[in-house]
């Protein structure tokens, strides 16, 4: 028997169309010359057909309430769409050993105008809170949290989160990472028709990443907690709030 080497498993896989092309070609040739093998393949094919027919004939009603139950449970178990402040921070923290012992924080709270911060030896005035840069203003208006945008002239702005404060104002936390110098973490709230900076922290950085170190974020956390900031808005809620903003403007 030249074809006795072909196992039932192979013939079955051939009948089921589960063999790789090259193996299937070999079985093709063998079956063509051996009626007994062909009959065996047909037998496997027939069992598949009978079982498939049985499957088609089975009723499979599911209980009436199950679909709603699944939808409700899905809503409950959906991966959290809310922007997680802590997670964002974790991602941008530099390891503690890179934080200078005397990490210097410049804190300005409740300043509406332009604030000049002296930056170490350079004496280079840094306009932190005026948000006079149109790009920063625009980022507050339309940059979704979690995204960053390059700013003409160097640096980038990152939207961290949106929330409402105790007064019900729409506020946003953003980071401004200039091409050179300190990262500025800022909270601005939308008052009447414009943005007012409520907090700005100029974070000392130990390396050239410009990432804000953990200590400055503790300051921010203290501020957020004191101002009774809400939990960060979900992506959808934030988008809706931003839309409302631009329509009102």
């Amino acid at each position: 028997m030249p074809n006795s080497a072909i196992t039932d498993e192979t013939l079955m896989a051939y009948a089921d169309g589960m063999l790789p092309d090259d193996e299937a070609a070999k079985v093709d040739a063998a079956v063509a010359n051996d009626p007994a093998l062909a009959a065996r393949v047909a037998m496997f094919g027939e069992t598949a057909t009978r079982l498939s027919d049985l499957s088609q004939a089975q009723k499979a009603n599911v209980p009436a309430g199950l679909e709603d139950h699944i939808r409700a449970l899905a809503a409950e178990t959906a991966p959290e769409p809310v922007i997680n402040l802590a997670a964002h921070r974790k991602a941008r923290q530099v390891p503690f050993w890179q934080i200078p012992v005397a990490a210097s924080l410049f804190l300005a709270v409740g300043v509406a105008g332009t604030l000049l911060l002296q930056q170490g030896q350079t004496n280079h005035p840094l306009h932190v809170t005026g948000l006079e840069q149109p790009a920063l203003h625009k980022a507050l208006d339309d940059l979704p949290s979690g995204e960053s945008r390059d700013i003409a002239g160097g640096g980038e702005v990152v939207a961290v989160a949106s929330f409402t404060n105790a007064e019900g104002e729409f506020c946003r936390e953003i980071e401004f990472r200039p091409a050179r110098g300190r990262t500025i973490i800022s909270v601005a709230c939308h008052e009447d028709t414009s943005w007012t900076v409520r907090l700005a922290v100029a974070a000392a950085t130990a390396d050239d990443t410009g990432y804000a170190p953990a200590s400055s974020l503790e300051t921010l956390d203290a501020y957020l907690s004191a101002s009774q900031a809400s939990a960060p808005m979900s992506v959808a809620d934030e988008a809706a709030a931003l839309r409302k903003l631009t329509q009102a403007d």
Binding site: E9, T47, R50
Partner: peptide, 8 residues
């Protein structure tokens, strides 16, 4: 394969 042979 065994199951289908038995069914057949």
């Amino acid at each position: 394969a065994r199951g289908r042979l038995a069914l057949a």
